[in-house]
Design a protein around this nucleic acid. Structure first.
Lengths: 217, 217
DNA sequence: TAGATTGTTAATCGATTAACAATC
DNA sequence: TAGATTGTTAATCGATTAACAATC
């Protein structure tokens, strides 16, 4: 029996995936909002990218355009959202009710993201029971049961660095499929468990290195 | 007269720069702290990287090692810190006193970063005068004068998305050299002005795309 | 000494950019 | 129709990985 175990399908370049939210943002901005159609040329000009790159990136969503016309703006936005699963905000648990975590909840800051926090947990006894917006901070031992019952598959990790692995272990044992890691360290997880690290230190390092290079010349 | 205007010097791969903080973190962790010397092999094993890649990355800092021995752990950490300008925390202004910005100040969250916030500003009238930790939130029109007097060269941008460009314009006109952009949008800045974007949406997109791919199979 | 590790050059891999036929 | 734009294949570029001599 022939099994095509890795037909090079569904394996899309990460840089392309990282640009998709930029396209989505452009498509939803006032700038573009009046138009019915948009071309790669327009997008590329606005975002200072190569038009061919934009076309390749968009093609991973399955969208097809029309020569001379471009893409239907709304269809394109919908195709990107579908590809990312962003048609609706995904339910997520927030683990860590400190400042960074809480900033995901309010209106300001990264609260525009398509995440719907449906539970807030912490390991620090003094935070349990506190209210953050409309959420009550729950103890970690409530997490597994609630995760199963609510079918939550994303955990956002924003605890203190030294508690990160412990919190991860609880998440991994709760039917959660993916962790968005906002803490600085690496996390040990089973194979096939999804970890994405929002790495503050790498980003600051790039800024710092460029600043150092500039100051030296 | 011969002018070597771009001798391909000082142009280091960004992926390498992004890994430097990981090495630094490892070198300062308990795990490594007892040893005098560390080898690329050890670092690579701990961080699940290729040893040759680690060696190439470290070489951009100018460190030299000894065959069979490796690098002196403290010297290596110092070399990375020097390369990034992280020997001391860099003075920075925080623009935007909302939850995300404030989380840079406390002890928790990204407060471990080598940034020393020496001024907090906001554009929202209702936040001016409030205290956040040891800082009083100042109005934006105080920023230029203070930036010049205190020789601050880094601005951390954490205002509401629709205010981001306006705040950027103030920073650019204040002798600030670099902006760490924690807001979702692109910013217009003059050439040679340094912008580094901590892109929450790109990071979440990678997580989302992987989760979608997993759920589909 | 033997062998692990560095530093560096060469090969590979993957992403970006260029070229171009098809088409509306 | 003419020409802008798509979709796709080929060329280039840059980063990762392999190979290997030097060395402690």
């Amino acid at each position: 029996m022939f099994i095509s175990n890795s037909p090079k399908k569904n394996i899309h370049p990460i840089p392309s995936i990282r640009r998709l939210p930029h396209y989505l943002r452009f498509l939803k901005a006032d700038q573009a909002h009046s138009r019915t159609n948009v071309s790669c040329t327009q997008i590329a000009r606005a975002l200072e990218l190569d038009p061919t790159q934009v076309r390749k990136d968009l093609s991973i969503t399955g969208i097809v355009g029309r020569p001379r016309v471009g893409y239907n703006r709304e269809q394109l936005a919908a195709a990107i959202e579908k590809f990312l699963g962003w048609q609706n905000a995904s339910d997520a648990f927030l683990v860590g009710a400190g400042g960074l975590g809480a900033s995901l909840l309010g209106d300001s800051g990264p609260a525009h993201l398509p995440l719907n926090v449906v539970g807030v947990f912490d390991m620090q006894a003094e935070l349990i029971g506190k209210r953050i917006g409309e959420h009550e901070v729950l103890p970690m031992d409530r997490l597994p049961d609630l995760a199963f019952r609510m079918h939550v598959s994303i955990g956002v990790l924003a605890v203190a660095p030294e508690k990160a692995q412990e919190a991860t272990d609880v998440l991994v044992g709760s039917g959660i499929r993916a962790i968005w890691n906002l803490t600085p360290g690496r996390l040990e997880v089973p194979e096939n468990f999804i970890i994405e690290h929002l790495d503050f230190s790498s980003s600051l390092a790039v800024l710092s290195a460029r600043l150092q290079a500039m100051l030296k010349s």
